[in-house]
Design a protein around this nucleic acid. Structure first.
Lengths: 156, 156
DNA sequence: GGACAGCGACAACCTGGTTGTCTATCATGA
DNA sequence: TCATGATAGACAACCAGGTTGTCGCTGTCC
C-alpha cells in the first residue's frame, strides 16, 4: 500500500462527491435542475446578510466579479431578486425569493436523507464519531468559509 | 442545528481541501510549482498503462480532448515525454519522465507527512477507524476513478 | 481493395474563476 | 463647500479544465 496518505484525501473527496452528486441529481428530479452547490453558497451568503454582489464576494472569499456572475444566473433563474437600494444608489440590493428558500429547504431535506442512509450503513454512533473526528481535524468553522469555488463541476 | 446532513458534506470537502492545499503548497516549496492534482491523476493513468491521449481520457473518464490538453502542459513542463509510436503511426506514445517520477515521489512523501500529522492530532487508531468508515461508505474503488475533474482550483 | 474504427488536431463553446479599467455614487476632512 | 478617496457595479480580456463536433490520417478486417 503506497500512497496511503493520498488515499485518505481521495476517500474524503469521494465521500463529498457521493453526497453532493446524489443531492444535485435528487434536486433536479424534484424540479430544480441546473441548481449547483455554488448557488447554494451564494444564497446562504445573501441570507447571512451579504445583500450586494461585492458583499457576497467578500463573504465567499471570491472576487466581486465572480460573485456578480453567479448572482446574475441566480436572478435569471428566479432564486434571487435584485433591485435598487433606496438608501445607496450605487448598490443593488439582493434578496432570496420564495423559490430560493424553497430550493434551500429541499436541499436540506435531501442531505438529511442522505445522512440517514449513511447512518443505516455505518451505525449512528460510528457516523457521529466520524463527524467528531473530522471536526477535530479541520475545525468547526471549516464548515462555512471558502467552500465555494471547490464545487464547480457537473455530476455525472 | 439545521443543515446537519449538508455539514457532513462540507466536513468531507474541508478535509480534502486541507490536505490537497497543503500538499500543493509544499510541492511548490520544493520546486514543483504549477503542479496540480489534475496532473497527478493524468500521470498515474499513464503509468498504469494508458500510453496515449485517448487512453488517458478513457482511464480518467474524460474526453480525449481534455486529456490531450492536460498532457500538453505535462509535456511542456517536462513531466511527460511524447514521441511517435513506431508500431502505430496514429499514436503518440507517452512516457513519464524522470522528473515526472520525482514529483510523484515527492507528492507521496508529502501526503504521508500530512497523514502522520493527522495521526498525532487524532490518534492512530481513531484515524484508521475514520478511514475504515469512509471505505465502508464509499467503497474502496472510490479511491481511484473519476477523481480528476473535481480538483481544478488553485490553493489560496 | 474498400469500409469502418481509432488517434490526434483544431475550433468553438461552457463554467467558474481571475485581473484590470471605468463610471457613478457616497463619505469624509480641510 | 468642495476636493479627495473609497466603494458598487459594469465591462472586457484572460485562464483552467472541461465539453461537442469536424476533419484527415492510419490501421484493421472482411
Amino acid at each position: 500500500m503506497p500512497r496511503h496518505g493520498a488515499d485518505l484525501a481521495l476517500l474524503l473527496l469521494s465521500g463529498f462527491r457521493t453526497l453532493v452528486d446524489a443531492a444535485t441529481v435528487e434536486l433536479a428530479a424534484r424540479g430544480y435542475d441546473d441548481f449547483r452547490p455554488t448557488h447554494e453558497f451564494a444564497m446562504r451568503a445573501i441570507i447571512a446578510g451579504a445583500d450586494s454582489a461585492s458583499a457576497v464576494g467578500r463573504r465567499l472569499s471570491v472576487s466581486k466579479q465572480a460573485a456578480a456572475k453567479t448572482i446574475a444566473v441566480l436572478v435569471d433563474r428566479g432564486y434571487v431578486s435584485s433591485g435598487p437600494d433606496p438608501a445607496d444608489a450605487r448598490r443593488n440590493r439582493l434578496q432570496v425569493t420564495t423559490r430560493g428558500f424553497d430550493v434551500l429547504r429541499e436541499g436540506e431535506s435531501i442531505f438529511e436523507d442522505l445522512r440517514a442512509r449513511w447512518e443505516e450503513k455505518l451505525g449512528a454512533a460510528e457516523l457521529a464519531r466520524l463527524e467528531a473526528s473530522l471536526v477535530t481535524l479541520v475545525g468547526d468553522g471549516a464548515v462555512d468559509v471558502g467552500a465555494a469555488g471547490w464545487v464547480a463541476h457537473d455530476p455525472i
